[in-house]
């Protein structure tokens, strides 16, 4: 029975690790300036914990195998040195791993969340609602109109609660259902929620940030590749959560300028 247990644990462990190593299912491409640090951190953690996982499971298997020996006259044996070497090993090995991961990882985190956005950032307002994202560009005047929750009216397309009758800055605001940005230009988002908690998640940007009702949450990124990527909601927000998505379209700068002009004309 012990040998069987050991064999099953070996097989499970090796198959599991093999699939990780082969990257059968893995992160999609990275298109952000801050993503490579995250990916590196992911790889380092994967290797470090992978070794712990393999070692833990295999040693367990080996010991169980040994403990099933039916040799007559075999006496029980205490682990060499008792608990002390194990406790010491755990503290030193895991402690080192923790220290390394924290020091390296906090840089990756800081680059995304703790650095201010570049001064030339493109500012886009994001409104999340059950169950869609809307994006607002300031329009030709470069000014965002004020937000008035009482003016919000999905039926007339006023998703943000603009007041164009009294607020001139709001009249040329461009509101669209996709986040269209120029490549290689820093983008600074301000996340608002109209109703409940939502989240902004673009796998390819390696970025996730909740929308908090009542707060304006800043988030910035720079996309380094053109293409169309999904923005999905990752904070449970109600019945349509699974279908709450939008697209991030990254365009060459000139194409983006044209797009913006065509939107402003509407």
């Amino acid at each position: 029975m012990g040998k069987l247990f050991a064999a099953v644990v070996f097989v499970i462990t090796l198959i599991s690790v093999a699939i990780f190593v082969m990257h059968t299912w893995w992160l999609p491409i990275d298109i952000s300036t801050t993503g490579p640090a995250v990916d590196r951190q992911m790889n380092d953690t994967m290797i470090g914990t992978g070794i712990l996982f393999l070692a833990g499971q295999l040693v367990l298997g080996v010991f169980v195998w040994g403990s099933s020996s039916r040799k007559s006259g075999r006496k029980i044996r205490i682990f060499p040195g008792g608990a002390t070497p194990l406790v010491t090993a755990a503290i030193i090995l895991v402690g080192l791993e923790i220290l390394t991961l924290t020091f390296v990882g906090s840089k990756a985190w800081g680059a995304i969340y703790l650095t201010p956005p570049a001064a030339n950032s493109l500012r886009v307002d994001v409104q999340a609602e059950q169950f869609a994202f809307y994006f607002r560009y300031p329009g030709p005047d470069g000014q965002f109109g004020g937000l008035h929750p009482d003016k919000i009216d999905d039926g007339s397309g006023n998703y943000f609660g603009l007041d164009p009758a009294n607020d001139i800055a709001a009249r040329d605001d461009i509101v669209v259902g996709s986040l269209v940005v120029p490549v290689n230009r820093p983008v600074e988002l301000t996340l608002h929620s109209k109703d409940v908690g939502h989240s902004f998640y673009v796998r390819e940007l390696r970025v996730q940030q909740d929308f908090v009702p009542g707060l304006d949450i800043p988030l910035h990124f720079t996309a380094t590749q053109t293409g169309k990527f999904e923005i999905v909601c990752t904070q449970l927000c109600g019945l349509g959560h699974y279908n709450m998505k939008a697209y991030l379209e990254v365009m060459p700068e000139d194409q983006w300028e044209q797009w913006l002009k065509s939107q402003a004309g509407q």
Binding site: L27, A37, V38, Q41, M42, T45, G48, T49, E97, L101, T102, G105, S106, K107, A108, W109, I112, Y113, R203, R206, V207, Q208, T234
Partner: peptide, 13 residues
């Protein structure tokens, strides 16, 4: 180990 790190949680959360 993965989820305890904010920099990975930003993807895995």
């Amino acid at each position: 180990f993965f989820l305890a790190q904010p920099s990975l949680d930003t993807y895995l959360h």
